[in-house]
Simulated assay, not measured.
Amino acid sequence: MEKLSISDLHIVLVEPSETQRKIITNLLLNEDVKEIESASTIADAKKAITSHGADLIVSAMYFEDGTAIELLEFIKEQTQYASIPFMLVSSETSISKLEEFKQAGVAAILPKPFTPLHLNRALIASVDLINHDELELELFDVREVRVLLVDDSRLARNHIRRVLESMGLKKITEAENGAMALTYIKDAPFDLVVTDYNMPEMDGRELSEYIRFNPDTAHIPIIMVTSESADSVHMANIQQTGVNALCDKPFEPTEVRAMLAALLGE
Rank of each mutant, 00 (worst) to 15 (best):
Y184F: 13
D191A: 13
L148I: 02
S153T: 02
A122C: 12
S94I: 10
K186V: 15
N177S: 04
S166Q: 01
E100P: 01
L169I: 05
P189T: 14
S96V: 07
N131L: 01
N131W: 01
D187F: 10
P111S: 11
K112Y: 09
F114P: 04
P189I: 12
P113F: 11
H159A: 15
D128L: 06
H118W: 12
E100N: 10
E92P: 10
A107G: 10
H132P: 02
L117Q: 14
F190K: 08
G178N: 12
H159M: 10
E165L: 06
R143P: 08
L117N: 14
T183G: 08
D141R: 08
K97L: 13
A122Y: 10
I160V: 14
K186L: 15
K102L: 11
R121F: 15
K186T: 15
L182V: 09
M167H: 11
E144Y: 09
P85R: 03
E138N: 07
D128C: 09
D151M: 02
L135Y: 00
N131I: 00
V147F: 00
R161G: 03
E92Q: 14
D187E: 15
G168T: 09
D191H: 15
S90C: 08
V142A: 15
L110H: 04
L164S: 07
F101D: 02
L123A: 03
A175T: 06
D141C: 05
T173F: 01
L164K: 07
S153V: 01
P116G: 09
S96Y: 03
L137V: 03
S90T: 15
E134V: 12
A179E: 12
L164M: 11
E174N: 09
I124N: 09
P85L: 06
R146S: 15
A188V: 08
V89D: 04
E136K: 15
V163N: 03
